[in-house]
């Protein structure tokens, strides 16, 4: 058993560095100048600054990266990408970290992962996002009664203005199923 456990740890480490490898490649030229941190509108709420996060990525510190909230606080404003003196695609690197977290269903990022997944499920079912279905499913999935409560007054306003439909949803037609399946097939390693 002991051997198996060690092997598990070993395999996990290997697969961790595999997953980080493409991101390390993207930001290899980072010179730690901190322009990204100085530009980031969300840096005030982060534990590690963006600059520190890129160093952790280059060092392969997967545990530390995925204990941090930093990448999940990126709001895709592209200011760091625009200003990076090395021309690195930093916003895309943040997205790549979000994709790893979503793929591993990491509990630390529950809210954003469930938000995005439920959004994509609604798109998969109808081709276009149905906001009422998506938000209802998101509220159910987070299992936190305080979350829908925060949105109650806004939800009522939107319904009153006829902006979100409360009628029965159209039956799912799955119009994008072939595309979703093909993407999945191409992304699954042989």
């Amino acid at each position: 058993m002991k051997t198996a456990t060690n092997l598990d740890v070993y395999y996990e480490a290997v697969s961790a560095s595999d997953k980080l490898a493409p991101i390390q490649e993207m930001i290899r030229a980072c010179m730690q100048c901190g322009t990204c941190t100085g530009s980031c509108p969300n840096a005030f709420a982060m534990d590690y600054t963006p600059r520190q996060l890129w160093r952790l990525v280059l060092l392969g510190q997967k545990d530390e990266i995925f204990r941090s909230k930093t990448f999940s606080l990126c709001s895709d404003c592209y200011l760091c990408t625009l200003r990076c003196p090395r021309g690195l695609h930093l916003t895309e690197a943040m997205d790549a970290l979000k994709q790893i977290a979503a793929g591993e269903n990491r509990a630390e990022y529950k809210y954003s992962i469930l938000f995005n997944k439920n959004f994509m499920q609604s798109v998969r079912r109808h081709g276009r996002v149905k906001e009422m279905e998506f938000m209802t499913n998101y509220f159910t999935a987070v299992k936190n009664p305080l979350v829908p409560f925060r949105f109650a007054s806004l939800g009522i306003k939107l319904i009153a203005k006829g902006k979100v439909s409360v009628s029965w949803l159209p039956k799912a037609r799955f119009p994008l199923e072939k595309i979703f399946q093909k993407v999945n097939e191409l992304e699954t390693p042989p």
Partner: peptide, 17 residues
């Protein structure tokens, strides 16, 4: 018959999608 562009949710789940 246009469909969703993926918004910011697709890029947080799959690059290719």
């Amino acid at each position: 018959d246009w469909t969703c562009c993926g918004a910011s949710a697709a890029e947080a789940t799959s690059d290719l999608l």
